[in-house]
Simulated assay, not measured.
Amino acid sequence: MELLVERTENGVAIVTLNRPEALNSLNNALKVALRDTLQELRDDATVRAIVLAAAGRAFCGGQDLREHVESLEAGTGASLSTVTEHYNPIATLLGGMPKPVVAAVRGMAAGAGASLALLADFRVGGPKTAFLMAFANVGLAGDTGISWTLPRIVGHAKAVELLLLAEPVDAQTAFGLGMLTRLAETDDDVLPTALELADRLAAGPTIAYGQIKRELATGGSGSLADALAVEAEAQATCGHTTDHQHATAAFVQKQKPVFKGA
């Protein structure tokens, strides 16, 4: 199977890209499976955090170019329609996921693979983690939300450099730029570190996390008025949750709150 899904009793869903022999490059079967799985996890209230991981020595090599070349030679147009059919929905689901997403980025994340990682809320890497905005190397523009995420993380000027020059970014540099939010001591520690973080997030106020993500998405590009309007809506939503009511009572009683994600 191109995609593996494991659910833990703590409310974490581990989604693993499983084409290690092809550096987890994205063929149509994997893209469809990832798109449909993310939609299912979004709508599942028992899932309170998601870990996006990969099998083998690379996180994701981006688009499967062998399949892409075959499609180009066939002249069906499927090679380019994949952006609207697969990559855009995947980016929308990941970027708008109303629960925390942690990417365990072990090894290379190239092209759309880098895009997937950067759509996560947290990115954990190791010494051999690297990013490559490889699109221009094959005469393509960016996709899978890279033009939205990358400037927000590294700034406009650095995003231009990374996308146009398409040079690898090593783990230390990526950590300094904010492309990685955690840097594990070894590559074997990447997934355990990501799972530990996901467990912590899954025990938190899930609805509030989703509303905070919504606020940041608006505040990062909208006007102050836009941000204030979303903040008012978000607080109204959170204010009616059981988590807020119980956490407030626990604070008054000097107790540690227990969040149920509702």
Rank of each mutant, 00 (worst) to 15 (best):
Q172W: 13
V190R: 15
A166H: 07
A174N: 14
L183D: 09
H156I: 13
K158M: 14
T181E: 06
P192E: 07
P151S: 07
L162Q: 00
E185N: 14
L180H: 02
E185I: 08
G176R: 12
V160L: 10
I153C: 05
W148I: 12
I153E: 01
R152P: 07
D188L: 14
L180K: 00
L191Y: 13
L163F: 01
V160A: 10
I146T: 03
V160G: 05
I146C: 02
R182P: 01
A166W: 01
E185Q: 15
A157R: 12
T181D: 00
P151N: 08
A194G: 08
P168R: 08
I153G: 01
T186V: 07
A194L: 08
V169N: 00
I153S: 00
E161S: 11
A194V: 02
D189C: 05
V169E: 03
T193R: 12
L164S: 13
D170K: 13
A184F: 01
E167P: 03
M179Y: 01
G155I: 05
T181F: 03
R182W: 13
T173L: 09
D188Q: 11
A159C: 07
D187M: 12
D189G: 11
V154I: 07
K158D: 11
Q172N: 13
W148D: 15
A174M: 04
T173F: 10
Q172S: 12
R152H: 15
L195W: 15
T173C: 01
H156N: 12
D187N: 15
D187R: 11
S147H: 04
D188W: 08
L162W: 00
L177S: 01
L180V: 04
I153N: 04
R182A: 07
D170S: 09
T193M: 02
A166Q: 04
E196C: 10
L180E: 06
I146H: 06
E167H: 10
D187G: 03
T144N: 09
D188N: 14
P168K: 04
G155R: 04
A184K: 06
A174F: 07
E185F: 15
T149R: 12
V160T: 02
T181L: 04
A184S: 11
T144K: 10
L191V: 08
A166P: 13
L164V: 11
A159M: 09
A157G: 02
G176C: 12
V154H: 01
R182D: 15
P151L: 02
V160W: 06
L165Q: 15
G176V: 12
T181K: 03
L180G: 03
P151I: 06
A159W: 00
L183F: 06
V190Y: 04
T149H: 06
A166E: 09
P192V: 05
L163E: 00
L177V: 03
L150N: 10
D187Y: 10
G145I: 00
T186I: 07
R152F: 06
A157L: 13
L163N: 04
V160K: 04
R152V: 07
W148K: 07
D170W: 08
K158Q: 15
E185K: 15
P168M: 05
W148S: 14
T193H: 03
